[in-house]
């Protein structure tokens, strides 16, 4: 049954990469059920993350946000700051898609803090870019400029001319 769980997860990922998002969700939900049965929190975390990603491409941003919140909660439980940062970044982008910019900013700021703690300059640059855009959407140009300047500085440092 543990192997069946892994196979279901792999099937979910294969369908996802083929762009079969509804099929992917069916497999990841079954994978999640087996992970819960075994009390396997790492596998539950992966399933929630995969479910969040698949729902984005079906335009169900509300459901993605719920799955990403579960991912975030489990990443903290598992003390995995890399996944915690990724979950915050996903939540920030999802709330931008939902046009809930205050919430987007809340999560992008959390992502920024973790990226700084981890010394992840690429992540920090992406957080600044996202914050710059979210503040523009809110009409807060002063904060947008602050993050645009940081984004420029980091892009030059890491050699990203784009």
């Amino acid at each position: 049954r543990a192997a069946a769980g892994r196979a279901l997860g792999n099937l979910g990922n294969s369908h996802y990469l083929l762009g079969h998002f509804t099929q992917a969700i069916l497999f990841h939900k079954q994978r999640l059920a087996i992970a819960k049965e075994f009390g396997d929190t790492a596998a539950q975390r992966r399933a929630y993350s995969n479910l969040g990603n698949a729902h984005i491409f079906l335009g169900r941003f509300d459901l993605s946000a719920e799955f990403y919140k579960k991912t975030l909660q489990l990443s903290r439980q598992l003390k995995d700051p890399l996944v915690e940062a990724q979950s915050c970044y996903s939540l920030g982008n999802t709330y931008s898609l939902l046009q809930e910019y205050e919430k987007a900013i809340e999560y992008h700021l959390k992502h920024l803090t973790i990226a700084q703690e981890l010394g992840d300059r690429v992540g920090e640059g992406r957080a600044c870019w996202s914050l710059e855009n979210a503040y523009i959407s809110l009409g807060n140009h002063e904060r947008a400029l602050h993050f645009a300047e940081k984004h420029l500085e980091i892009s030059q440092e890491i050699g990203d001319p784009n």
Binding site: N10, L17, R46, S49, S96, R126, S130, S137
Partner: peptide
Amino acid sequence: VQRMHLIQMDSVQRWMEDLKFMTDCE
């Protein structure tokens, strides 16, 4: 407003492009 929305979307679009190939593997 439309321009703001377009600016908003570029970082999100980039994230979605990366997301297409992102899976949490078993």
